[in-house]
Amino acid sequence: MSSTTARVAIVTGGSGGIGRAVAERLAADGMAVVVSYAGNPERADAAVEAITTAGGTATAVQADVADERQVSALFDRAEELYGGIDVVVNTAGIMLLAPLVDLDLDDFDRMHRANVRGTFVVSQQAARRVRSGGAIINFSTSVTKLAFPGYTAYAATKGAVDAMTLVLARELRGRDITVNAVAPGPTATPLFLDGKAQADIDRLAAAAPLERLGMPADIAESVAFLAGPARWVNGQVLYTNGGVI
């Protein structure tokens, strides 16, 4: 099966949490979506089934985002299936929290590999292959500005993502490809909620003027904007956090 008319999106980390919400939203907007996942085929298949049941088009493809050979094969597969690539969304990442003085350096290296190297490797393929009129959308975090204690290493990896995003937008001059990052604030995902006391969750929910946590669909809405109509938004970090900062 191939198509040269429908827009095609690759969503890394697309099998759960914010990534799945993004994949479902882009599919609902009419894109064929490649749901890239690291190691849980059952969750990826469930995401694809949800999309196809709703009338969309999707395929699950496994890839380690930090492995350049696997990422190249991921892009090859997208092109084989759908004829090209228009949108790449880097939601894949991990978050391991501890104060700087206590963080295990193996955890730091794991986050750097997934969040920094992974974003770089996927962006490298995207820069080579995304068609004119396309969009590359990375994932940052509002914690780079909120500066919550315990988030030092995670925020550092996302600061690197911000830098890559701004520079790549300028390196793609003349290609008609936008490069932006979405920086969620506190969002009700299993990754965010895991291990937090209810009092802490309530405090974070009250911090936004809208007095709630973000939902994955809220973040997906910003991605859909950057992936579709937002052709004059380029080289930006879009803080999608309900006004926390």
Rank of each mutant, 00 (worst) to 15 (best):
S2Y: 12
S2L: 15
S3I: 14
G16N: 10
G17D: 11
G17R: 03
A21T: 13
E24T: 15
E24Q: 14
E24V: 15
R25H: 12
R25P: 07
A27H: 03
A32T: 11
V35Y: 07
V35G: 07
V35T: 07
R43K: 14
A44T: 03
E49R: 02
G55M: 09
G56D: 10
T59P: 00
A63V: 07
D64S: 12
D67T: 01
D67V: 12
R69D: 15
R69V: 15
R69A: 15
Q70I: 04
V71Q: 11
D76C: 04
Y82S: 08
I85S: 04
V89Q: 08
L97T: 12
A98V: 07
P99R: 10
L103R: 01
D109G: 02
H112W: 13
R113V: 08
N115H: 10
V116K: 03
V116G: 03
T119Q: 10
V122S: 03
V122T: 14
S123C: 13
Q125S: 06
Q125K: 09
Q125V: 10
V130I: 07
G133P: 07
G134K: 10
I136C: 04
I137A: 09
I137E: 11
N138E: 08
F139D: 03
S140K: 12
T141F: 04
T141L: 01
K145Y: 06
A147V: 05
A147R: 11
F148G: 00
Y151V: 11
A155F: 00
A156E: 02
G159A: 04
V167T: 13
V167E: 12
R170T: 12
I177L: 09
T178Q: 04
G185S: 13
L193W: 01
G195L: 01
L204K: 08
A205F: 03
P209D: 03
E211S: 15
R212N: 12
M215C: 12
P216S: 01
A217F: 09
I219K: 05
A220G: 06
E221W: 09
A227C: 11
P229D: 07
P229V: 05
W232S: 06
V233L: 03
N234R: 06
N234K: 07
G242S: 04
G243H: 05
G243R: 05
